[in-house]
Design a protein around this nucleic acid. Structure first.
Lengths: 150, 150
DNA sequence: TACAAATATATGTACATACATTTAATGTAC
DNA sequence: GTACATTAAATGTATGTACATATATTTGTA
């Protein structure tokens, strides 16, 4: 559906303003879809993202700083999301001996197994961007990268 | 900057997965920029969005349902955002006489003046999508609309 | 009319975000 | 080596999101 219909606003100041709203709206749309998909697994989207980063590091641990650096939303609070994951037994946290300010966060076997289950879900229909051709997806990536050119 | 560099992940499962992450990341990037811009005015982004909808209706009031329908994030809680705006004197809320279940929310003079100030900000550099040509913005809109084709 | 279903809004709770502050450990200048 | 700045992580607080539930009102229907 066109963005005009989605938010029932027919007039935009410019194609730019429309694009801004469209990016934000589509992001919400995609995240909500994925969040619904993940619900049965008992992890939220931010928690899932942290788990994926940790799997990328595995079997090395990651510090909180590294998690922040790689998170999609850099201003979010990694400490507290790791709290939740730790409470569920999906990660462990222990003080790093060489620099006692930092914390080694490591995904557990249980965490790895959970991700594997969730992968099978993603493997099928994927990320929600199923209506585009590969070329269109690539084109979209170019345009989005260009937006962030500082 | 390319999304690969932004989140320091060099490998994606597909152009689709990359596009998903890119949409979400870029949305956060744009919103954070706008939020920073708006900070001095003492309203958050969701609050600003509600104010804009109310101005669109002015001098007619809007119900909470109408606000939800037009909000970018439809699952958010309009009632509580209106609470905050009311506390700041930017909107008024009163029970509608013809249907006492509904509430008439109306932007105040103070709210209109605030928006006008903020417009001047937006009017200049605009929405953050300043690196695209008009054609590219239009192309982006097409691709994003297509993603949401159910 | 009575009464169940639908609608509009508000509220409770868990989680996350945004941003400032705190605490502890490390690095560096003198 | 003490003093001060820097860094890493945690914590406090206000706001917002997601979702379930509650409350009041209206609508539809037997």
């Amino acid at each position: 559906m066109k963005i005009e219909e989605e938010i029932k606003q027919s007039v935009f100041k410019s194609e730019y303003q429309k694009a801004y709203i469209n990016v934000v709206y589509t992001s919400g749309y995609l995240q909500q879809a994925q969040s619904t998909l993940f619900k049965p697994f008992g992890v939220t989207l931010p928690q899932y993202n942290i788990l994926r980063i940790l799997r990328g590091q595995y079997p090395k641990p990651a510090t909180i700083s590294l998690l922040i650096e790689r998170m999609l939303d850099k201003t979010s609070n990694a400490s507290r999301i790791v709290d939740k994951l730790e409470a569920k037994g999906l990660v462990t946290r222990k003080q790093c001996p060489s620099d006692r300010r930092t914390v080694d966060v490591l995904i557990t076997e249980k965490g790895l197994q959970l991700l594997e289950q969730m992968d099978s879900l993603e493997g099928g229909k994927g990320t929600g961007i199923t209506n585009l051709s590969e070329d269109e997806a690539a084109q979209l990536n170019l345009l989005l990268d260009k937006i962030r050119n500082k």
